[in-house]
Amino acid sequence: MKKKFPYKALIPFILLFVFFLITTYSVLKGYTREFDRLLLESAADFHTDLLTKMMTFFSFIGATKPVVVISILFLGVIYLKYRNLQDVILFALVSLGSVTLNVVLKMTIKRERPESSLIVESGYSYPSAHTMAAVSLYGMIIYLLWKHTPTVKARIIMITFGVSMILMIAFSRIYLGVHYASDIIGGVLISSFWLLTLLTIFQRYRKKEKKKSTQKDTC
């Protein structure tokens, strides 16, 4: 008997993509202008020397070079311990795809950055590359460690750490005035969509491979 296609499983993908399209349309039409201005001004009210140093640090580790270093170190540890090349390939596809997607979207939308900021940044604003990189990197770290973490307590700590890093990197970009809040929202939505899509494809592929292997063993 042929299995029915699990259409309900598409709901998260559809919601993420639709919300991204809505956010992008709102940005292009200028509907988020007041919302973005209010959040930038609110973030500026919290400026202190200590907090600025903290946010500069989180912004730094969300930049390209630190992300690449963290990714290589993490992948090296994962591969040496579990010898799973498929995980390495998946990690690379998620990361490279996220970067490519960000470049294409920025060059297509060409949104200028906020005029006032605490640090100097170049390039276009929407969507936030730091946020997309954070979602891809720490999303993958959560996924890979989840597979090899048996205890509930350890999984809770792992998820808390990963989500906290994403939030801090994302907020740092608004605090420092180099991104609008809508840049962050758009980055989270499209990067989550990309991450979830690749993880789902990968999981289905592994199930098929496992099924084939089981059938061969029983023959």
Rank of each mutant, 00 (worst) to 15 (best):
residue 65 K to D: 13
residue 67 V to Y: 03
residue 71 S to Y: 12
residue 72 I to A: 05
residue 72 I to T: 14
residue 73 L to P: 15
residue 74 F to R: 00
residue 75 L to T: 10
residue 75 L to E: 14
residue 75 L to A: 14
residue 78 I to E: 12
residue 79 Y to I: 03
residue 80 L to I: 10
residue 81 K to S: 13
residue 82 Y to K: 15
residue 83 R to H: 15
residue 85 L to D: 08
residue 86 Q to S: 15
residue 89 I to C: 11
residue 90 L to S: 13
residue 90 L to D: 08
residue 92 A to W: 15
residue 93 L to F: 15
residue 94 V to D: 11
residue 94 V to A: 14
residue 94 V to W: 04
residue 94 V to S: 12
residue 96 L to T: 11
residue 96 L to N: 01
residue 96 L to V: 13
residue 96 L to P: 04
residue 97 G to I: 04
residue 97 G to P: 08
residue 98 S to T: 05
residue 98 S to I: 12
residue 99 V to C: 04
residue 100 T to C: 12
residue 102 N to I: 09
residue 103 V to E: 10
residue 103 V to T: 07
residue 105 L to W: 02
residue 106 K to G: 06
residue 108 T to V: 08
residue 108 T to C: 11
residue 109 I to T: 00
residue 109 I to W: 01
residue 109 I to D: 01
residue 110 K to T: 02
residue 111 R to I: 02
residue 113 R to N: 10
residue 113 R to V: 12
residue 115 E to K: 14
residue 116 S to Q: 15
residue 116 S to G: 10
residue 117 S to N: 03
residue 117 S to L: 13
residue 118 L to R: 02
residue 119 I to Y: 14
residue 119 I to L: 07
residue 120 V to Y: 12
residue 120 V to N: 14
residue 120 V to M: 13
residue 121 E to D: 05
residue 121 E to V: 08
residue 122 S to P: 02
residue 124 Y to C: 02
residue 124 Y to M: 07
residue 126 Y to P: 00
residue 126 Y to K: 09
residue 129 A to T: 02
residue 129 A to L: 15
residue 129 A to G: 06
residue 131 T to L: 09
residue 132 M to V: 08
residue 133 A to R: 12
residue 134 A to Y: 04
residue 134 A to P: 06
residue 135 V to S: 04
residue 136 S to Q: 00
residue 136 S to T: 07
residue 137 L to M: 07
residue 137 L to E: 01
residue 138 Y to D: 05
residue 139 G to V: 02
residue 139 G to T: 03
residue 140 M to H: 03
residue 140 M to G: 00
residue 142 I to L: 12
residue 143 Y to D: 01
residue 143 Y to R: 05
residue 144 L to S: 06
residue 145 L to A: 10
residue 145 L to Q: 11
residue 149 T to W: 03
residue 150 P to G: 08
residue 151 T to W: 01
residue 153 K to S: 09
residue 156 I to Y: 06
residue 157 I to Q: 01
residue 157 I to D: 05
residue 157 I to G: 02
residue 159 I to L: 08
residue 159 I to R: 00
residue 162 G to W: 09
residue 163 V to Q: 07
residue 163 V to P: 06
residue 164 S to F: 11
residue 165 M to K: 03
residue 166 I to A: 01
residue 166 I to C: 11
